[in-house]
């Protein structure tokens, strides 16, 4: 089959809603786009453990500590599900991880912000995981089988992440004046960065059209952002939290909530590496990777020797 025929057949399968599996023929560009997008997603899950991990040892109660530990462990799991899915495209785990630790691989800009109080943990669960749910529910329908399956698995766990944050924030918002202030302050700081998580506006998002054509995504950045805003406005109201946007207004014609101008300059600065925590995040990841090297080597060596012993004995 010539290249064009293969391409047409591939597009027909996508339009038909079929899933593409690792050994199926796929355009080189599809593979490359998937590797780029999925590895960024995996890195984000991993780096996402850092802002929350910051509070594990200072959780306000044993219950909250257990919850946070479980949540952060889930995020490690999410990273692993997706890495395992990217590896089916013919890249090794090591290449992926090192591209992130020593190379230029990107991850979600949201994790380059600091967690200043425990209320940030509440706000992250509610907003950041809430936004992740909107995005990942769409990705669960992605045309690439392994990616889609890893998203199904992740989505099952995300509702716990969101609910524990929302519940805690609701408690604080109805607590003492200090607690209420802390809760509101955290939401004020996390609101805009959360909206940026969906990526640049549609007219500045170079990859979107192609990803949609190939069924990797089914909604644009702005569509996803809008559906997140719509559901979050209601949730904020219910717990007496204000969203820090004076332009937030219900639009009767569209049936959606209009929101104000997103500070995109800040977004591009963070992407360029100049967010408040970019350097700290990369430092922490490198430290963990390098200080863990001897453990990985020792385990390999132990396995090698044990195998030798077993072979001798038999």
């Amino acid at each position: 089959m010539d290249e064009q025929k293969k391409l047409d057949e591939f597009q027909r399968r996508i339009d038909n809603g079929e899933k593409i599996e690792p050994k199926d023929w796929m355009p080189d560009r599809y593979r490359k786009q998937l590797i780029r997008m999925m590895s960024q997603h995996a890195h984000s899950e991993v780096v996402g453990m850092l802002p929350e991990g910051n509070w594990i040892e200072r959780a306000p109660s044993l219950k909250r500590k257990k919850v946070l530990l479980a949540k952060v462990q889930d995020e490690a799991g999410h990273g692993l599900y997706i890495y395992s899915a990217v590896e089916t495209l013919g890249v090794t785990r090591r290449e992926l991880v090192e591209e992130y630790i020593y190379g230029k691989a990107k991850y979600s800009s949201i994790f380059n912000y600091p967690t200043l109080t425990y209320a940030d943990i509440c706000a992250i669960g509610w907003l950041v995981d809430g936004a992740a749910i909107v995005n990942q529910t769409m990705l669960a329908k992605s045309s690439y089988g392994p990616y889609s399956r890893s998203m199904v698995r992740i989505c099952k766990e995300e509702s716990f992440h969101k609910k524990q944050g929302y519940e805690m924030l609701a408690k604080m918002a109805n607590g003492t004046p200090e607690q209420k202030k802390m809760a509101q302050d955290a939401v004020n700081r996390w609101w805009w960065p959360t909206l940026m998580m969906f990526g640049p506006p549609d007219d500045e998002s170079p990859n979107s059209a192609e990803l949609i054509k190939w069924g990797v995504k089914s909604k644009t950045n702005d569509e996803l952002r809008q559906s997140f805003v719509d559901r979050t406005v209601m949730e904020a109201k219910k717990i007496g939290i204000e969203l820090p946007d004076p332009d937030l207004k219900y639009n009767k014609e569209t049936g959606h909530w209009d929101y104000g101008e997103i500070p995109w300059d800040e977004f591009w600065e963070v992407i360029r590496g100049n967010g408040p925590m970019n350097r700290e995040r990369i430092r922490a990841r490198r430290k963990a990777y390098e200080e863990g090297a001897w453990v990985r080597e020792a385990a390999s060596e132990y396995a090698r020797k044990k195998k030798l012993r077993d072979e001798k004995a038999s």
Binding site: Q73, G77, E157, A303
Partner: peptide, 23 residues
């Protein structure tokens, strides 16, 4: 379920449990 990296079968099982069967 997916895949894991591990130096030997025993650790592969443990990693598989922690990764794919937390619930």
């Amino acid at each position: 379920a997916g895949s894991v990296h591990a130096p030997d079968a025993e650790m592969a099982l443990q990693n598989a449990r922690d990764t794919y069967s937390r619930r």
